[in-house]
Amino acid sequence: MKVGLLTREYPPDVYGGAGVHVEFLAQELRALTELEVHCWGEGEAEGVLRHRPADGLAGANEALRAFSVDLAMAAELQGRELVHSHTWYAALAGHFAKLLHGVPHVMTAHSLEPLRPWKAEQLGGGYALSGWAERTAIEAADAVVAVSRGMRDDILACYPAIDPGRVRVIHNGIDTRLYRPDHDTSALQRLGVDPSRPYVLFVGRISRQKGVPHLLRAARAFDPEAQLVLCAGAPDTPATGAEFRELVDELDRARDGVHWIPETLPRPQIIQLLTHASVFVCPSVYEPLGIVNLEAMACGTPVVASAVGGIPEVVDDGRTGLLVPYGARHPESFESALAQAVNRVLDDPPEAARMGAAGRQRAVREFGWERVARRTYELYEEVLGRK
């Protein structure tokens, strides 16, 4: 089976959960299909074709630049039997290939544009274009993959024209051979984190979606003995970045042990940070699944997370971590509950260790990439069988 996998992010240019998903899915699919990856970037490698926005669109709106990449991808997909796109950045390429080459289009929705209104701050009028692209592609796709049951509900609510029978839940995965406890502390020492003190860890983008301002305000009430480590970069907008810096500076004046790491760290260093964290925090206000929670669990670390989207399908409340209800109308209540949950884990190291061990077991048992790839391949066969 000749498959074209379409994505914006692909190693070495991975900055979010969708990129992680495609990276590991592609590794497993290569054993099952004749796979060709189409992504953004420069240069080529075996089985990987990289595309860049049209030169004439330098400085243009990001959505228009994305559309130019979609056109380039579609032109190169001749001979593929099926195409599989990820995120709105590549969805139109899949839709164009379906129309141009007469092949089925499978689309994985990692998030939904109607549920991310803050993207208008980043894309301006391009947000209307990204929404149009997503709607056009998802409503015409032969099959839609939702990365959680919560995400499937959101897809059908946002796009009621879609036949529910075309929407299939296939959870994200985690490579538990790669993400596993690493007890070395050299990365912590290099980054200035004190290994002898407990610390709370956040890893993610500086965006409205990730709820970082909530975390920083909640951290005012964290146990003063605990450090806070923020692996946070790539702000959505200058304004979002400025707000983050202001909150970090304010927190840094009020307590010690605040470590902001703005650069993207190599994966081995992230794994060390995850391993030694007393608790990992995911304060997202919108999260279709949240691969980063799986990464923390695979490293044996308890998770405190907001109970939104697909997170409750990953974090088993009371067993592998604690879930905190999120309400946009009462952010102070959410922040207070977040602080209480974090302190509860910090105050009971034996219970935290039990949660961490249970999280590792759950990640190994239920979220392996081989299983994800096999279910994805079975969906390909089903879609092709309809033709």
Results as ranks from 00 to 15, higher is better:
242 A>D: 12
242 A>P: 02
242 A>Y: 03
242 A>E: 14
242 A>S: 10
243 E>L: 14
244 F>Y: 12
244 F>H: 04
245 R>G: 13
245 R>P: 07
246 E>I: 08
246 E>P: 05
248 V>K: 00
249 D>P: 03
249 D>H: 11
250 E>I: 01
252 D>E: 14
252 D>H: 15
253 R>H: 13
255 R>M: 08
256 D>M: 11
257 G>N: 05
257 G>Y: 10
257 G>R: 10
258 V>C: 09
258 V>F: 12
259 H>A: 12
260 W>K: 03
261 I>E: 07
263 E>V: 10
263 E>T: 14
263 E>A: 12
264 T>Y: 15
265 L>Q: 09
265 L>T: 09
266 P>V: 13
266 P>F: 12
266 P>Q: 12
267 R>D: 09
267 R>A: 09
269 Q>R: 14
269 Q>V: 14
271 I>P: 00
273 L>E: 03
273 L>Q: 05
273 L>I: 02
273 L>R: 06
273 L>A: 01
274 L>Y: 13
275 T>P: 04
275 T>F: 10
276 H>E: 05
276 H>T: 02
276 H>I: 01
276 H>Y: 08
277 A>D: 02
277 A>S: 07
277 A>R: 03
277 A>V: 01
278 S>H: 11
278 S>G: 13
279 V>F: 11
280 F>Q: 09
282 C>Q: 14
283 P>L: 04
283 P>F: 05
284 S>Y: 00
285 V>Q: 13
288 P>N: 09
289 L>C: 14
292 V>M: 05
292 V>D: 02
295 E>H: 13
295 E>V: 12
296 A>L: 12
298 A>Y: 05
300 G>N: 04
301 T>H: 07
302 P>M: 06
302 P>F: 07
304 V>S: 02
304 V>G: 01
305 A>Q: 06
306 S>K: 02
307 A>R: 13
307 A>N: 06
307 A>L: 06
308 V>W: 01
308 V>P: 00
309 G>V: 06
310 G>D: 02
311 I>T: 15
311 I>P: 05
311 I>W: 05
312 P>K: 11
312 P>I: 09
313 E>Y: 04
313 E>S: 09
314 V>P: 03
315 V>W: 00
316 D>F: 13
316 D>A: 15
316 D>W: 13
316 D>E: 15
317 D>W: 08
319 R>Q: 13
320 T>K: 01
320 T>I: 05
321 G>E: 00
322 L>F: 03
322 L>H: 01
324 V>C: 08
325 P>G: 04
326 Y>A: 07
326 Y>G: 03
326 Y>T: 03
326 Y>R: 04
327 G>S: 15
327 G>V: 12
328 A>T: 02
329 R>M: 12
329 R>V: 11
